[in-house]
């Protein structure tokens, strides 16, 4: 039993990172009805820059690099819109492309090396289970970020405008909402959050150029598993993903454990098909 509890706790801590990656996806979906699949790449570039420069300045430069990458994505988004593209899937595919470009850039500039920041954080013991301070710190950061985002999206004028822009861009324009500016802002905020996730990964485990896809998919899973519209659900989604992964690693054979998190997403999604309609905003 104590083992089970330990896996759950460790999974929950690991899930904090996924929540941080899921939050920007949820935010963008709430604003522009599309997904930014480059978040894993923003995390990578932030970690690469931070590891290279080092220290607080490195962390700041890493966040700036992530936001710069996200700014490129927002320009691609606006460019595609100007070309008459309105389908969210096109922006999502474009973000996959950008992700590949960032990955190649990191490989070209830094080579295939891993980015590792070495230090061992102190740990606390909880009923015989040793928990790393860095992990608890990650969870705390994720929780704070997600709660702030939740309040902004659900209860602020800015949040109302973001949601309005997503569901009815023409209506939002008629209501004098600066739709495009808002959406670009959300891309940038996404870059910042993904960059933050990248730094936490760097300080907790280390990262290399192969990471973006896995990070993006875990974040995506965390974002959709309990409904994509809300940042608060991202936190629970991230924790659920982390716990599912930890339990699978602990108890299942290796072949099964790799696919378990995604089976878990499929299972949850298939259990609540009605919710997806409510999510689209129509009258059922």
């Amino acid at each position: 039993m104590i083992h089970f509890v330990e896996y759950v706790l460790r999974g929950a801590l690991a899930g904090a990172i996924y929540a941080l990656l899921a939050a920007p996806m949820s935010l963008l979906f709430a604003t522009a009805r599309t997904i930014d699949f480059a978040v894993g790449a923003y995390a990578l570039i932030a970690a690469a820059v931070a590891a290279t420069i080092g220290g607080i300045a490195g962390a700041e430069a890493g966040l700036a690099a992530a936001m710069l990458s996200a700014a490129i994505m927002s320009l691609i988004f606006v460019g595609l819109k100007r070309l008459g593209c309105e389908d969210g899937i096109v922006f999502a595919l474009a973000s996959f492309g950008l992700s590949a470009v960032i990955e190649s850039f990191v490989l070209w500039y830094w080579g295939a090396r891993s980015f590792i920041v070495s230090y061992v954080a102190a740990s606390w013991s909880l009923g015989g289970i040793r928990l790393d301070q860095q992990g608890l710190f990650n969870l705390l950061i994720a929780a704070i970020v997600v709660v702030i985002l939740h309040v902004v999206v659900r209860h602020s004028s800015l949040g109302r405008m973001m949601r309005a822009s997503a569901v009815n861009a023409v209506g939002a324009t008629l209501a004098a909402i600066p739709v495009e500016g808002l959406q670009m802002g959300v891309y940038l905020a996404g870059g910042l959050l993904a960059g933050l996730a990248g730094l936490l990964v760097l300080y907790s485990a280390g990262i290399d150029f192969t990471a973006p896809l896995g990070l993006t998919l875990s974040g995506f899973g965390a974002a959709i598993v309990f409904g994509v519209g809300s940042p608060l659900r991202c936190l629970f989604g991230g924790i659920a993903m982390g716990v599912a992964q930890a339990l699978a690693s602990g108890y299942l054979s290796e072949a099964l454990s790799a696919m378990t998190p995604f089976l878990f997403i499929l299972l949850v999604l298939s259990m609540r098909p009605a919710d997806t309609e409510a999510l689209a905003g129509g009258r059922p």
Binding site: M161, N168, G171, A175, G229
Partner: peptide
């Protein structure tokens, strides 16, 4: 009614306006 935002509540729609 293209000036409405369907998933937002009545209050929220008015608040935006």
């Amino acid at each position: 009614r293209g000036n409405l935002f369907a998933p937002l509540t009545v209050e929220e729609n008015l608040a935006i306006a």
